[in-house]
Design a protein around this nucleic acid. Structure first.
Lengths: 218, 218
DNA sequence: GCGGGGGTCATCCAAATGGTTGATTCAGGC
DNA sequence: GCCTGAATCAACCATTTGGATGACCCCCGC
């Protein structure tokens, strides 16, 4: 079987160097290009395709300091916007919030790994993803399992949306206006959120939602 | 001049590999050991010292998934607890919150760099730090400058302390009990914090304090 | 030794938030 | 068709928070 041709997308030179070195040690894996953001990644994919050197797998970070972020880039790649038969995209990032994971999966990622994973785990994920299979980090899988096992504590989409606005410091009134609903409804949602999270005020809701990685704390 | 002997401390295998590769490309720099947390770092320092192969510079991450964190490790190293003449410690991390920077400087770090820095910047920092000079990332330097230029907006230590408790979701009463002060005092501090941050409620204070990296959003 | 800033506390009042109950609409599953 | 859960709204009241003012102590620098 021929070698797996990989495109690295990460804005940190240090991390790119690390992945290049690590993947270089894996037999059957070949890093053929690198990009520092989503735009560059799409450009690289197109370029390599016209050169007749297609990419078998994209290793993508989600957080990119500038330029197109990882989720958008994944969407565009999977939608075929690079002008190529879309290669699978394996997310490799530091954060594992519910929001991030869901966004990545919806964007069409075929895997989600964390950067602190041991090399062997990353190697397995790369091979799986390149073979068209799904590759989830144990931590990520565990979070999804937990949600399925305890659905009563799963926040609805609307509730997460409120929580995100809450975390920006908006008042109930401001949130109501922003979402075109009444303050009463905002309060109802908040009560539900509090009971699901087991807290009794908004700051605590933000704190535990951040800790449980339901929303971003950054 | 002989080569600079470096100890890498970072819990991410990927990042260690990246730094090893990157530093390996710098002439006059030599990675002689690695550690995944603070405890291991101290052990390595001691071991290398008894072997007569002292370390010239420690490259340290602040966030360590488990084991001793980077600030504590830096403190102990600089206090000579590794049983060696303390080598300079250069912090290399992803985050640049005020709290992190101050803690690192107080712990005795002689530099503070960010992981998304270009290799050349990292090389300069390594050389400076090994030579006993201070090496600050431009972003970090800018933040310190900003504080000096606009001292009216600098929060006092007590205020930051309150802010951190605030961010955990505690009520004024709970904060008062925790700090052994009255609720009235808590409210006074909060008013000062609000005016310094330019906000008018606690959640907004948390949001902007997190954004401005006065406290951690994690 | 005087001023200023940080930290502490109190009181009073207005505004925002939390908690409860109850009700309507709508979509989806059995 | 019925039930459930999500989302919407309202009215009420208790509690918490926010804002303003004034005061005391202590340390440090000029």
């Amino acid at each position: 079987m021929s070698s797996i041709r990989v495109l690295l997308v990460d804005d940190h030179p240090v991390v790119r160097a690390g992945l290049r070195a690590m993947l270089g040690d894996f037999p059957g894996v070949n890093v053929v290009a690198e990009a520092a953001d989503g735009d560059a990644a799409l450009a690289e994919l197109g370029k390599l395709h016209t050169l007749g050197e297609p990419v078998d797998l994209v290793l993508m970070d989600l957080q990119m300091g500038s330029g197109m972020d990882g989720v958008t880039a994944t969407q565009k790649i999977r939608a075929g916007e690079a002008g190529t038969p879309p290669p699978p995209v394996l997310i490799l990032t530091t954060y594992d919030t519910d929001a991030d994971i869901l966004a990545a999966v919806e964007a069409g990622a075929s895997g989600y790994m964390l950067k602190d994973a041991p090399p062997e785990q990353i190697r397995q994920a790369v091979l799986s993803a390149a073979a068209g299979q799904t590759a989830l980090a144990p931590e990520v899988a565990a979070r999804l399992m937990g949600q399925i096992r305890n659905p009563s504590q799963v926040l609805s989409g609307r509730e997460v949306q409120l929580l995100e606005l809450l975390a920006t410091g908006m008042s109930n009134r401001a949130i109501a206006k922003q979402l075109f609903i009444s303050e009463a409804t905002v309060k109802t949602h908040l009560v539900h959120i509090y009971s699901k999270l087991g807290v009794d005020n908004r700051t605590a809701a933000i704190a535990t939602a951040t800790q449980r990685r339901i929303i971003r704390g950054h």
